[in-house]
């Protein structure tokens, strides 16, 4: 176990380095720099600015400098948002995104798992059909569509929910709902099919032959096996929630990490691009590792190598 985690961490560090290097290389393929967009500064100012942030040095030197500082825990200052360090911006953005993302993952699991179970247990009956139809449509609707339709209904037509910002609990309703919609539908489908598979397994027959009640068969023997695919899905789900949050944050003008990432790219805010990319990548990789370890705990068959 410890060896496995150590190995995975090592691989993750390598992947992160790879992501950082690719990002660094890609960043400079884009013509223009961070300071061009602002009312075209004079050549002298530009040079001074470039010099100040070390952008005048050869790329390879810049790369080395960045990496050395990064390892020391310094992600530098934002080139656009003067006076704020990259880590400050990331930490404020992350707090917002994590709240919305965490809530929607929680909701997706709490609704999706029972829905899938209910559908599987009522296989072929109307309740199952309703859940299947809704879930199948659900995975076909992109989050921006859900978000905007919610907005039309609750803000434009009914005028009962605020459309931007995150200052009260009402502000959370639509973003979280929009973000949770797809994974809820996906988890329902996943849970249904894995539940159906588990219900047909020989060990369920064994459980029945022991004289166990429906309740115990379901909660002890079926659920723990059927939930395994959902656990594996949590890794991709976390990544999805992040991308989904790019859109949802844009629609509801929420100052989260996704917003910071996209605008840093559009603004050529080099340090911010590096910082957010590495941070998001690390987050996704870490979450995948956590999910894999959790999987091991639930399913003793999986041997972590």
């Amino acid at each position: 176990m410890v060896r496995y985690i150590a190995k995975r961490v090592l691989l993750s560090v390598f992947t992160l380095w790879l992501v950082a290097t690719i990002t660094f290389a890609l960043m400079f393929m884009v013509p223009g720099g961070p300071f061009l967009a602002e009312k075209t500064p004079s050549a002298a100012t530009l040079e001074a600015l470039n010099q100040k942030y070390g952008l005048d040095q050869p790329k390879i030197v810049q790369y080395r400098n960045y990496m050395v500082k990064f390892i020391q825990g310094d992600m530098g200052v934002s080139l656009k948002q003067r006076g704020r360090t990259v880590s400050q911006i990331i930490s404020t953005g992350f707090k917002v995104s994590a709240k919305i993302g965490g809530l929607s993952i929680l909701i997706a699991v709490l609704i999706g798992v029972p829905l899938g179970c209910i559908a599987a247990l009522n296989r072929g009956k109307w309740l199952d059909n309703v859940i299947i139809v809704v879930a199948t449509c659900g995975i076909a609707v992109p989050s921006f569509v859900v978000a905007t339709i919610l907005m039309i209904i609750f803000s434009v037509k009914l005028g009962i929910l605020p459309t931007y910002g995150l200052t009260s609990w009402q502000h959370y309703l639509m973003p979280v709902a929009a973000l949770a919609f797809y994974p809820t539908a996906y988890i329902s489908r996943l849970m249904r099919s894995s539940m159906l598979e588990v219900l047909g397994q020989d060990y369920m027959r064994t459980a029945r032959a022991k004289g166990l009640s429906q309740f115990w068969m379901l909660f002890k023997h079926a659920l723990r096996n059927a939930i395994l695919p959902v656990v594996t899905y949590l890794g991709p789900l976390i990544a999805y929630t992040l991308t989904g949050s790019f859109v949802v944050e844009k629609i509801f003008t929420i100052p989260g990490l996704g917003n910071a990432f996209i605008s840093s790219i559009l603004n050529r805010d080099y340090t911010m691009i590096m910082g957010t990319t590495i941070f998001l990548a690390a987050l996704i990789i870490l979450m995948n590792l956590v999910v894999d370890v959790a999987y091991k705990i639930i399913d003793p068959r999986i041997k972590l190598k």
Binding site: D202, Y203, R205, T206, K210, H221, N225, D299
Partner: peptide, 15 residues
């Protein structure tokens, strides 16, 4: 009580 044909699948793998 009953013993089934396939012992490989008749026991619950997670307990």
């Amino acid at each position: 009580s009953i013993i089934f044909q396939d012992p490989m699948t008749s026991l619950n793998p997670v307990y």
